[in-house]
Every structure is written in C-alpha cells, then in structure tokens.
Amino acid sequence: MRIVPAGDRALVADFGNVISEDVNRKVNALKKSLLAEKAAGVREMIPTYRSLLVEYDPAVISMQELSRRIEAASLGGAQAEAEKKRVLEIPCCYGGQYGEDLAGLSELTGLSEKEIIDIHAGTEYRVYMLGFLPGFVYLGGMDERIAAPRLKSPRVSIPAGSVGIGGSQTGVYPMASPGGWRLIGMTPVSFYDPNRGKPVLCEAGDYIRFVPIPPEEYERQIKEGGAS
C-alpha cells in the first residue's frame, strides 16, 4: 500500500492498479477500521476496487497525522472483513418482457435461456465498489460463459431494477438511466431509494446472489412496494 495526496484535502491509500478480491478486501478492511476509529477531521471516504480515498479537513487533522493513522489502520489486514460475510438474496424475474435481451444472449452464447439463468443465479457476486449512479454496484465473479459485448446502440432509458450483463460484468440499474447492457431480468428490490432511511441497499464488501422468481411473484412484490 502507498499513501499519496489527492490535493490538499485528501489522501489516497492505494493498493495497486488491479481488480482482485484480495486487494478489494484490504480496501474494505481499511475503510472499516478507519470508520471504527472515528478520527476527527475525516469528511468522506470513497472505496474503489483498488484504493481508499480519504477526504479530510487539514485545519483539524494534518496530512502527516492522517497518513500515520491510515498506516496503522492498514496493519489490521483483511481479516476484519472475512468475519461476517453479508450475502443479499436478490429476487430476479428472468427473460420475456422482464429481460428482453435474454433470448439474444442465448443465441450469442449458444446456451439455452435456462442454462444462462442457472449460471447467473448460481454465482455469488462480490460488491467491489459502488459508483456511476447512486447505488450502482460493480459486481465481480461473473462466469465468462455468459459474458457478452454491450449493445451496439445503447437504450435511451432502462428502468430501475433492470438486471443486465455488459462485457464480463453483471449488475442492476438502481434508477432509470440510459445504458448499453444486455437486459436479462428485473428485480422488485429497490437498490436505491432516496426517501428510505438507508437510501442505498448494498455496500462494498457485500455479496449478492440472484434468486429466480416467476412473473406472478415479481408483480406481487412490486405491488407490495418491493421486497426491500
């Protein structure tokens, strides 16, 4: 880990230019131990795949002092996270009108729709980071057999709750947005709701497993205001 300044009000604890579960665990563990410390003057923390950005108020804590604290907090290692793994089960209604691109993906990959669903729902995905949109999760661990390039022309608006595949990534649109991912299903669970006590469902370090549900169940959960 190296600690580098991002201007006069932020330090970045950088673990290297890689996507790996090990590195991401270290990022997450560092964030948790800094949070537990409740250091005065820390204004914001942004964990990514590979680094933790810590914004601070230099009038309250000096760069040197914060750097020492980050150094000390990093010694705890990645164990902290492993202790309690949080797995969120996300119901997903696959295919048909709920996942318009599933049929196309089946042609593209040579797998049946059922096989794609089994693979997609049979994997536990790690939330590496959030970004791009409020509550948008960058998930790792998708099976390469169901990977597919993004659509040539992105959709103008994809509804919230859409589950898609873009390249080797899978994810859920937390709010309506333009996008080029191939849509394979919809979840009734709201990943982002600004009016909820906890506006964003997941945090980095969580795991997600998709659970296939039939359309009736999807509609029932939507009527009940989502399963969240």
Binding site: K31, R43, E44, M45, I46, P47, E55, L130, G131, F132, L133, P134, G135, F136, P174, P199, V200, E203, A204
Partner: peptide
C-alpha cells in the same frame, strides 16, 4: 452531500 459517495452519490 458527504458520506454517501461510497454509495455512488455525487457530492
């Protein structure tokens, strides 16, 4: 808006 950037929410 601070302490929500880890959730992808812009400041």
């Amino acid at each position: 808006r601070f302490f929500y950037q880890s959730s992808g929410i812009r400041p």
